[in-house]
Amino acid sequence: MLALLPAIAYAQCGGASWYALTSKTASGERMNPAAFTAAHRSLPFGTKVKVINRRNGQAVTVRINDRGPFVKGRILDLSKAAAEKLGFLRAGLTQVCLEALD
Rank of each mutant, 00 (worst) to 15 (best):
M1P: 13
L2S: 15
L2F: 13
A3W: 10
A3L: 00
A3C: 06
L4S: 11
L5E: 13
L5R: 14
L5T: 14
P6V: 13
A7K: 15
I8C: 14
A9E: 07
A9Q: 03
A11K: 15
C13N: 08
G14R: 00
W18P: 00
T22P: 15
S23N: 12
K24C: 07
K24L: 12
T25K: 09
T25I: 05
T25D: 11
A26K: 05
E29W: 06
A34C: 12
A39N: 00
H40V: 11
S42H: 13
F45W: 09
T47G: 07
T47N: 13
T47M: 12
K48R: 15
V49M: 00
K50P: 07
V51E: 02
N53R: 01
R54C: 03
Q58L: 05
A59H: 09
T61K: 08
V62L: 10
V62R: 06
V62I: 01
V62E: 05
I64N: 04
N65L: 10
D66R: 04
G68N: 02
F70C: 10
K72W: 01
G73R: 06
R74F: 07
L76T: 01
D77A: 06
L78P: 01
S79W: 06
A81Q: 09
A83E: 02
E84K: 12
E84W: 07
L86E: 10
L86M: 06
L86R: 02
L86G: 04
G87L: 09
F88E: 10
G92N: 04
V96K: 10
V96C: 05
V96I: 10
C97S: 13
C97F: 03
L98R: 05
E99K: 12
A100V: 11
A100D: 10
L101Y: 00
